[in-house]
Design a protein around this nucleic acid. Structure first.
Length: 210
DNA sequence: ACATTAATTGTGT
DNA sequence: ACACAATTAATGT
């Protein structure tokens, strides 16, 4: 079939003749226009997508319907959450929408599991997908923590200003870092950001809160 | 006043 | 996180 060139281009790690044959045998080539919801929270996944073109946007949704962006899935990738759903036989906890016109090969989930033991290339591919997504999620957590620290720092400064009666906090970045259980570099950078925002004025051994 | 040094802060990787 | 540059305060001469 003419799927094979596209597969090899974007999924070089799946280069195993038998596996490719199987993918061509059971996979369905799909084209979806942009803004198509492929998966809803609570829904059961019927297939695992191998993205060939375009991109999928993966997000979470809270009870109020507010959407939080998690990450994109690009050509050459598949959805780690789908793997999770397949293996655990659980409903989806995320929502996925095509960001652009997207082409993919849909693998019915019944094949995902057996292939793990049948094809080493498939197993490596799944593990790699997991690993990649995991680091990406760690990064996301980092930025969230970072943002919270930013708010914590400002209220910390305001608190100290309140206590001191003046508008100036005395001390080094290192000491503040220690108080907030962070590192000096992070505090320095956050303070610099706050200065740019006009919240504070930086000096040596002192911070003026505005 | 100037040079030297230590401490603090800034920045790239 | 680490390494290093840049800046600033402190000290001695």
């Amino acid at each position: 079939m003419e799927l094979r060139p596209a597969l090899l281009e974007y999924f070089p790690s799946l280069n195993d003749q038998e596996l490719l044959q199987e993918i061509e045998r059971v996979g369905n080539f799909m084209q979806v226009p942009a803004e198509t919801t492929m998966m809803e929270i609570g829904g059961y996944v019927r297939f695992m997508p191998l993205i060939l073109k375009g991109a999928m946007k993966v997000m979470r949704e809270d009870e109020a319907g507010n959407e939080v962006f998690l990450y994109f899935i690009y050509p050459g990738q598949t959805c780690a959450v789908t793997i999770q759903c397949c293996l655990a036989h659980a409903p989806s906890q995320i929502k996925a929408v095509s960001e652009e016109d997207t082409e993919m090969i849909a693998i019915p989930i019944d094949y995902v599991n057996p292939w793990l033991s049948d094809f080493n290339a498939w197993k490596s591919f799944i593990l790699e997908t997991y690993s990649d997504r995991f680091s990406e999620l760690l990064h996301a957590i980092d930025s969230v923590v970072f943002h919270k620290l930013d708010e914590r720092l400002l209220s910390y400064l305001k608190e100290r200003v309140k206590v001191s009666g003046s508008n100036t906090v005395k001390g080094t970045h290192q000491q503040i870092a220690y108080d907030l259980h962070s590192s000096r570099e992070v505090i320095s950078r956050l303070l610099k950001q706050l200065e740019r925002m006009g919240e504070i004025k930086l000096g040596r051994n002192k911070i003026v809160v505005l």
